Measured scan of single mutants.
Amino acid sequence: MAAAAAAGAGPEMVRGQVFDVGPRYTNLSYIGEGAYGMVCSAYDNVNKVRVAIKKISPFEHQTYCQRTLREIKILLRFRHENIIGINDIIRAPTIEQMKDVYIVQDLMETDLYKLLKTQHLSNDHICYFLYQILRGLKYIHSANVLHRDLKPSNLLLNTTCDLKICDFGLARVADPDHDHTGFLTEYVATRWYRAPEIMLNSKGYTKSIDIWSVGCILAEMLSNRPIFPGKHYLDQLNHILGILGSPSQEDLNCIINLKARNYLLSLPHKNKVPWNRLFPNADSKALDLLDKMLTFNPHKRIEVEQALAHPYLEQYYDPSDEPIAEAPFKFDMELDDLPKEKLKELIFEETARFQPGYRS
């Protein structure tokens, strides 16, 4: 834990890192770190609560700039109880001085990944967590956004079992017609939660990839272990087919990539493993919904509104309290091709509203 900075004593240090967030945020305490930044909790002297502050230093890398800009653009436009918001952003007053960006968010005690390492969940908890994931996802999908990296560590939890989806750095506007060349190379989302079509096709992607990830998360809540822990690309596919069985001819016809289709045709026939054999203690309604989410063919996979209306979630289902976005989200430009200098300018502009004396 960093010592509390005395008023006016300059930035606090946390594990050798400068955290320049005073005077409003003090009493910093280390939480963890990701690929390009550290997260601390801090005391907000204005709202009198502890908050989470993520320090991001992305400006050396085009990919990190892209992810940072995506996350900020999306989260500043989203407003939903099951999606983490941005409360404040701290950065230098000029673009030349801006080396880091500090993002202030609600402090959540833990995440689903940490929880599943230590606790076996009751059916009631599984049901409530799944409902909140789908409630947040309904809003995301209504904005025409794909999260693309749903996994237990991106689901934040607090002691009252509130759940918030975080990390929109890989999110995209849904565009089933656009052929994202190089899709697989830039697709760094965790393999275990990846839909089979991501490994088999490169053309376009749809909201059904997020539903697949939610199915993987439900299976993990039922058993405290990942359902498809593939060691590499082909191993991942083999794990999936080992449980779902061989795809039907109709399902194979959806695979545009001939090499991928021929690979699947070359494999020995596998039978589907019954879900109640894998999860003998699970609620039968939970397994019915799991089956509809972990469907090989993305066109037959359940959609988020149908999933919310499934009998497993009937005690929570309330369409009048499951809000959607006001308007579909649009990125003005494809960020993939922009140089990091341009992305830095866009991050600077996007964060201006939090600067003292800002006038829109």
Rank of each mutant, 00 (worst) to 15 (best):
A3S: 04
A5F: 15
A6W: 09
A7P: 13
A9S: 05
P11Y: 13
M13A: 04
V14L: 03
V14W: 08
R15A: 08
V18M: 12
Y25G: 04
E33M: 15
M38G: 05
V39H: 03
C40V: 09
A42H: 08
I53M: 02
K54N: 00
I56P: 09
P58C: 14
F59C: 08
Q62I: 06
T63P: 03
Q66R: 04
R67Q: 10
R67Y: 12
R70H: 02
R70L: 01
E71S: 06
L75F: 08
L76I: 15
R77C: 11
R77W: 02
R77S: 14
R79Q: 10
R79T: 13
H80Q: 01
N82W: 04
I84C: 13
G85S: 03
I86M: 11
N87W: 15
R91N: 15
P93W: 14
I95Y: 11
I95N: 00
I95Q: 11
E96C: 14
V101M: 00
V104N: 08
V104Q: 06
Q105F: 14
Q105L: 03
L107Y: 06
L107I: 09
L107A: 09
E109L: 04
E109C: 08
L112Q: 00
L112E: 07
K114L: 04
T118E: 08
Q119C: 12
H120K: 08
D124A: 01
F129G: 12
L130M: 01
Y131P: 11
Q132M: 10
I133H: 08
L137G: 04
I140W: 02
A143F: 13
A143E: 08
R148V: 02
D149V: 00
D149K: 03
S153I: 02
L156V: 11
N158F: 08
N158T: 03
T159M: 07
C161M: 06
K164Q: 05
K164V: 08
G169N: 15
A171K: 02
D175H: 11
D179P: 08
D179N: 02
H180G: 06
T181I: 04
T185Q: 02
T185R: 02
Y187T: 07
A189L: 02
R194G: 01
P196K: 01
E197M: 03
D210M: 01
S213T: 09
G215W: 05
M221P: 02
N224C: 09
R225M: 12
P226C: 06
F228Y: 00
F228T: 11
P229I: 04
L234M: 01
I243M: 12
S246W: 13
I256C: 04
K259T: 06
R261Q: 01
L265V: 10
P268H: 01
P268K: 11
H269D: 07
H269I: 13
K270P: 09
K272P: 13
P274M: 07
P274F: 15
R277I: 00
R277Y: 12
L278V: 12
L278A: 10
N281W: 11
D283W: 15
D283K: 15
S284I: 13
A286V: 12
L287A: 10
L287V: 14
D288K: 09
L289M: 03
L294T: 07
L294A: 02
F296G: 06
P298R: 04
K300W: 09
V304Y: 13
Q306W: 15
A307F: 11
P311H: 00
Y312F: 00
Q315G: 14
Q315V: 15
Y316D: 09
Y317A: 13
P323M: 13
A327H: 15
F331W: 15
M333Y: 08
D337A: 03
L338Q: 00
L338H: 14
L338W: 15
K340W: 11
K342R: 02
L343C: 13
L346T: 07
A352I: 13
S360W: 09
